[in-house]
């Protein structure tokens, strides 16, 4: 079972900086969809002990990237952006949907929130 504490979206960078300054290495970010929201779990490690925190993100909300603190987060954040449709801001490199997907790729089946939004004929599309 995992221990994870919830933080607010605008606290992500401060939390990541805390782990960086205290010698934790970046392990990964895990994205889930729960009740129409994204849940992103951030995982760090020091001396084999894992530390996790998570945020809940509304579909239209932008998530601050931690890739300028932990460069290693760059790839997973681009992956989450492409496969789940979460928008990250201030990415160290924004592949703009071309890391895993191609220019003419269909929408990822994991991006179910976006798929449902399109199915409903959302005017914002």
């Amino acid at each position: 079972m995992i221990n994870s504490r919830e933080v607010k979206v605008d606290e992500i960078e401060k939390e990541a900086k805390y782990y960086y300054d205290n010698g934790y290495r970046f392990v990964t970010e895990t994205c889930l969809e729960e009740d129409g929201k994204f849940k992103i779990i951030y995982t760090f490690e020091r001396e084999y002990e894992l530390e996790n925190f998570h945020v809940y993100v509304n579909p239209a909300e932008e998530v601050p990237s931690i890739s300028k603190i932990y460069f290693a987060a760059l790839l997973v954040e681009n992956e989450i952006q492409e496969l789940f449709g979460v928008k990250f801001k201030n990415l160290a490199i924004d592949f703009e949907g071309l890391l895993f997907l191609g220019e003419y790729s269909p929408i990822s089946p994991q991006a179910s929130i976006e798929i449902m939004r399109r199915d409903k004929g959302d005017k914002n599309e």
């Binding site: 392990v27 889930l32 290693a72 760059l74």
Partner: peptide, 30 residues
């Protein structure tokens, strides 16, 4: 790295795999 989440039943809700190559790509880019 394997993350699994279940809310009961026969199926998992989520499986997430962070493979070693994915972790090493940042070093390669460096």
């Amino acid at each position: 790295f394997y993350y699994i989440k279940s809310s009961g039943g026969k199926n998992l809700d989520r499986l997430r795999i962070r493979t070693p190559t994915f972790a090493n790509l940042a070093s390669l880019l460096h």
